[in-house]
Design a protein around this nucleic acid. Structure first.
Lengths: 191, 191
DNA sequence: GTACTACCAGACAGACTTGTCTGAAAGTGA
DNA sequence: TCACTTTCAGACAAGTCTGTCTGGTAGTAC
């Protein structure tokens, strides 16, 4: 139960600050103060602020990946119910973070294309999220036409993204509910 | 064909820079350099950088508002065709701006809730965009149930937002096409 | 002991930030 | 010509930023 090592403390602090204030609005000094560590320790573990950003996004990705894998694996539950569960996760996440939205999308708005590492991290995550929705749909319709199921999966991905984005913009949960309903409607059109 | 006045030059320059680099990543000095004006002139027209941001968003809103009013008014064209037209606008806008996405959503990611003026501007715009989709749907189904038409309009709004967001994240237009198809599918479910 | 690693405190450089201020030039209307 | 407004150039204050560097402490392995 002791203090985690400096690297983990930095990653945790940076995660909170980046998410709540945005990458560009957080400085190294603020991060090391929150992490209760020294600047020299920071640069011992991370080449630069940008490298920290990459590590943070990687960390978030790894966590969310396992949570999605669980949902894909729960084939004893219907696609619809698993989708609803996933939207409940989103709801809780947004409420919990004061409607700060998707860390990847927010970061994408702040870095330019020269930050290739960060941009790559964002695209990897988004592609993986898209694939999750496709797999989810496929798992519910094993005999369905792959092309159609992929199309619907892509659409669910966009609805999910729009829900997170507009919940953040409006500071309200209704877009989440709305996107969930639309997703169910699109799913019901498969047969 | 002479030089526009300083205020307009500043607004134009700031618009480009804010959109392409993001509000937090653009400084006053860069703006006045691009606008070919002096710092004193800047502060004669704008109280602060934040006030400039508000003025910029207001400006973008006014322009897009009239373009949407035209689409609502074109009742001789079907809802589906007008929706497709609007998605073509989005496509062109994203291509044109190197996939920099929605200025409002991007700005929302960079300012915190204390910037009440900016946050208000963002919410006003988003609410007006939501209303556009509702009015569009209603214009095509004058005898439809208002509650259902509003629900569908809200869903189209979220799809549109998700398309812009993920196009930016992935640097690709496929989400726009995908959202358009999903919108048409949801519309077709009305009767 | 000795070597090694992890960590810490914080000064410092050099460049950047927003916003204020001084003082002057250019254009306009009467 | 006189008065007025707009614009200009840029110094300046007071603070921020990232990243480097020096010098030191604590704990561990052998």
């Amino acid at each position: 139960m002791g203090k985690p090592n400096a690297r983990d403390r930095i990653l945790t602090a940076a995660g909170q600050l980046f998410h709540h204030q945005g990458y560009s609005n957080v400085g190294i000094n603020e991060i090391i103060k929150q992490a209760d560590t020294a600047k020299a320790s920071f640069y011992q573990h991370f080449r630069s602020k940008e490298a920290l950003c990459e590590a943070w996004l990687q960390d978030v990705h790894d966590r969310s990946e396992t949570s999605r894998a669980d949902i894909i694996a729960a084939t004893e539950t219907s696609v619809e119910d698993r989708l609803i569960t996933y939207y409940e996760h989103l709801s809780a996440f947004l409420t919990n973070s004061n409607f700060r939205g998707c860390p990847y999308t927010n970061t994408s708005a702040m870095v330019d294309t020269e930050c290739t590492g960060v941009v790559h991290q964002i695209r990897m995550h988004k592609e993986s999220l898209r694939e999750f929705f496709v797999l989810l749909v496929q798992s519910g319709y094993p005999d369905g036409d792959t092309e159609i199921l992929t199309k619907i999966g892509n659409q669910l991905f966009i609805l999910y993204s729009g829900a997170a984005t507009e919940s953040q913009n409006l500071g309200d949960l209704w877009p989440v509910e709305s996107a969930k309903q639309a997703s169910l409607q699109l799913l019901s059109s498969i047969e």
